[in-house]
Amino acid sequence: MPKDDLMPIGVFAQRTGLTSSALRFYADSGLLPPAEVDPVSGYRYYSADQVVRATVLRRLREIAMPLAGVGAVLDSGADAASRLLDEHVARVVGNAVAAQQKAAVIKSALGHAPGLPIAALKGPVLADAVEQVLTATAHEPGLPELAGLRIEASHEAVTLTATDRYRLSTRTLVPAGPPTQTWAGTVDGDELRVAAAEIRRSPLVQVEAVSHGIWLRVAGREDRHCRLLPGVFPDHRLMLASLGEVTTRVTVPKDLLLRALEEHPGERIGLHVAGHGVKVVSADDKRPGIPLSATATGQALRIWFELTTFYPAVSTAIGPDVMLDLRGHDQPVTIRSADRGDLTTLAMPIKADHAA
C-alpha cells in the first residue's frame, strides 16, 4: 500500500482515541497489527480501514472486556458479537452486585454489634408480599429511596410499603409471633427481589436488623443480606391520612378488568362510571367503550390513568375481585381486594387534557 494512504502511529492514535503505547500493545497481542512496518526504521503505519476496528477495540476495553473477549467480538458477526457483549455485561453487573452485597456484610460486621431480631414471618407469604409491593418502585436519579421497600415493624404487625410517586402500594403482614421490636428502614428493592426466590421455599424467615441492612435468616438455607438505602422515604402515612372522602365505589372482577386494559389500544385509559355501569374508554371517544360486569355506587365519574400506572396496581391485587375507591377525577384511587384489606395500592390519575 502506498505510504500516502497510510497514517503514522501518532496520527492514527489521534483518530482512534488510543495512545501510541496502547497501539503497540494491541499490535504485539495480535488484536490490531499495523498495516505496514518500515523494515529499516521500524515505524508503524495504519490504514483508514483500521479506524473502525480500533475504535471498537477501545470501547470494548472501556467496559473492561478482557483481551480474549475483545478478539472474539472483533472477529465475530453482528449477532454473535451482540451475544458476547450481553454475556460480558451480565458478568460485570453480577460481579458488581456481589461485591456490593459483600461490602455491606463486611460493614455490618465491622460494628461488632449483634443483630436486632425484628419478626418471624412465613417465607411464602413474605416473598409474595415483597413481589407485590415492589411493583410500585422506580429507579430515579438522585432518589434511591424510590427503588426501596419500606419495612415498618410495630408490636402488632409488619408493614411493607413502596412508592414511585405515581403509585403507592402497602401490605400488612401478621407475624408468626408478635414482633419483638419496633423498627423501620428502607431496604434495597433489587436485593429483596432476589432474596424472595430463596425465602419462598422456607417455612419461616427471621428478620434481623443490623447497622447497614437486614438479614433474612432461614433454617437449612443460606441467610440473605439486604442493604439499607440512603434518603428519606416519602411520608406515605401523611398521604394516606389526608385522602378525601370516597364518592364513587366500583367492585369488578379482576380478570375482566385486566383483559379490558390489555385490549385497550392506547397508552392512557379512562374509566367511565355512570349509574351502576362501568366502561373502559378511550380519550378520543371514537372507539366504543369496553363495558365491564361490575357493581358501582355513588357519583358518576370519568377518570384517566396512564396504563403503566393503573395496570400493575390492578394486577397485584389479591383475590378474584377488586374494589376501586374513587374520590374525584383528580384524586388518588384506592385499589384493594374486595374481601381482603392487607394489600392496598394508590394510583394517581392524570388530567383529562393529558389523556388526549
Rank of each mutant, 00 (worst) to 15 (best):
V56I: 14
E191P: 06
A153D: 05
A317C: 12
D285W: 07
I350C: 09
R53I: 03
A355Y: 06
S82K: 09
R227V: 10
R83W: 10
T297W: 07
R224A: 12
G266K: 11
A109F: 05
F12G: 03
E222V: 12
R302L: 09
S29E: 08
A184C: 14
P124Y: 14
D255M: 05
V97L: 12
T297I: 11
M1K: 09
P320N: 02
L67T: 12
E140K: 08
Q206H: 15
A274K: 12
H276A: 15
S41N: 07
F12N: 02
T309N: 15
M7G: 03
Q331W: 00
Q181C: 13
A338M: 01
G115D: 12
A157Y: 07
P34I: 08
P179A: 14
D235H: 11
R217M: 14
R287D: 05
T186D: 07
G94T: 07
A129F: 09
G277N: 15
E145P: 01
P265D: 11
A338R: 07
L346I: 09
W215Y: 15
A98L: 13
S20P: 08
V232M: 10
Q14F: 00
G69Y: 04
R61W: 08
S282Q: 15
L126Q: 10
P178D: 13
V322S: 06
E198L: 15
R217P: 08
V51C: 03
V232H: 02
A129Y: 08
I303E: 03
G69K: 10
M323K: 08
V246R: 06
T159V: 14
V187F: 02
A113N: 13
S202P: 03
P312G: 02
T297K: 10
R237H: 15
K107W: 10
K107I: 04
T19D: 04
A153K: 06
K351H: 14
L110T: 13
Q132Y: 00
A113D: 12
S41I: 03
L31W: 03
L67D: 12
A197T: 13
G123A: 13
P179K: 13
A129M: 12
L84Y: 04
E36Y: 11
D79N: 13
L326A: 05
P312I: 00
V232P: 02
F305R: 09
D4V: 09
P2R: 11
E263K: 06
P144I: 00
G341I: 03
P332G: 05
G94A: 07
L126K: 05
E36R: 14
V51I: 15
R259M: 06
I63R: 08
D188P: 08
V133E: 00
L74D: 07
A313V: 01
Q101A: 07
P34T: 01
A120G: 01
D285T: 08
A184G: 06
K102M: 13
W304I: 06
P34Y: 03
G220E: 06
R340K: 11
G148K: 10
A209P: 02
E263R: 10
